[in-house]
Design a protein around this nucleic acid. Sequence first.
DNA 1: CAAATAGTGTCTGTGAGACACTATCAG
DNA 2: CTGATAGTGTCTCACAGACACTATTTG
Lengths: 242, 242
Amino acid sequence: MPDDRWVPPTVLLAVDLVILTLRQSRLQVLLIQRGIEPYRGALALPGGFLSHDKEDLSAAAHRELSEEAGLGPDELHLEQLGFYGAPERDPRGRVVSAAYLAVAPRLPEPVPGTDASRACWMPVTQALAGESNLAFDHAEILTDGIHRAREKLERSALATAFCGPTFTISELQDVYEAVWGVTLDARNFYRKVQSVDGFIVAAGPTRKNVGGRPARLFRPGPRTILHPPMSRPQGPTSQEAT
Amino acid sequence: MPDDRWVPPTVLLAVDLVILTLRQSRLQVLLIQRGIEPYRGALALPGGFLSHDKEDLSAAAHRELSEEAGLGPDELHLEQLGFYGAPERDPRGRVVSAAYLAVAPRLPEPVPGTDASRACWMPVTQALAGESNLAFDHAEILTDGIHRAREKLERSALATAFCGPTFTISELQDVYEAVWGVTLDARNFYRKVQSVDGFIVAAGPTRKNVGGRPARLFRPGPRTILHPPMSRPQGPTSQEAT
DNA sequence: CAAATAGTGTCTGTGAGACACTATCAG
DNA sequence: CTGATAGTGTCTCACAGACACTATTTG
């Protein structure tokens, strides 16, 4: 029990980002090759310390998103993921990471020539393979982020955050299949997304393809909660949270 | 952009607890009347600062749980809930709260004569009523905690954490009804919990009641993920998370 | 025409909602 | 016996899985 003059310890607060997107029908994450110790040269999630005393946590997340990935706050899903003790992460003191999950639409090329040109997209399976090359406890954070994304696809309209402003139903199905690691029946998928009122709404006529019938375009609708939820097939990707 | 000698700002890290239980068939939360400024006299979630530099976050949560509620680490569900910026919470510096969600089984009496005798159980509806008397942003944290509990009842065996080591199916149904704020059909509830293999397993013969047929007793089973999930009726308690 | 992608019709099984029923206790 | 709580039988309807089908494009 501390005495009367006891003051609580302070910690360094870092913000780390799990930025997910879909590329080549695979779920991919943005990683940065570290330029400084510790874990110099290893791959890590984008992140950094608070820039100043009063900086809001979500503001810091958006700042990192912009600095390290060139992603603006628009058309982007960002939510809290959790905090991680990460003891002895840095010689400068006790560090606690506040992790955020971001979901970005398909992007033209890996990363623009931003601050961190060492950023790259990598399939999550590869990032987590082989007991991982990721720095710190970032493998755990990434695992939790993927798990969160999988869960939220069921109950929310998060899937549309993986797509651009307009998308086809096939593209949406692609998101579900890649994130969940399953294959879905097209007929049943159509029926489901169409039947949930306000999930997606028609936008424009059609989009031409390389060959095949043009697909209708949709935009995200006002509904953000899916009720009843999309049903996820019992897959090998079942894990327990927290 | 900070100069070369820039060092990141430090923050005070607090741990706050949303401790839920079921009392008189109502979802209740443990609150503490604050003895010090700020918000002296107001009700607040149990919590406090890290006790020392190396203390693990979940260890701190367990410590608070023991100090302020007299609850040991056994037979108790504890999980991370989120972090909260809580700017200007305390004159001693920038404070960030790490919130945890705890679920405790029915307890004999409100609180043993522990450190904080000013603790009391209160129905969550009352705690959140009237734009709230809760200190800091604790109303928001509590709301998020309730929301999390509601969600996890669907997909996990969290409901058993509200019960003692053994329980009847009626008691389990009571948990679902109180947390979700709905009424469920007993027949369908029976069918569901019995059909999910490993959710609950028979334990001992029966429990006598004040009058009526004795109920069979069950224990929590090995299954922690419910697949397919319990279906929650579309209720007025629908909210969106983070 | 064939190949490719988009989208539909429809059968069937599972499981949830509804609700009337039986079972076993205290008094 | 009555009242109370535990537990069952069973009908119906909504919806997910399966899968064969039609539609519209490029080359």
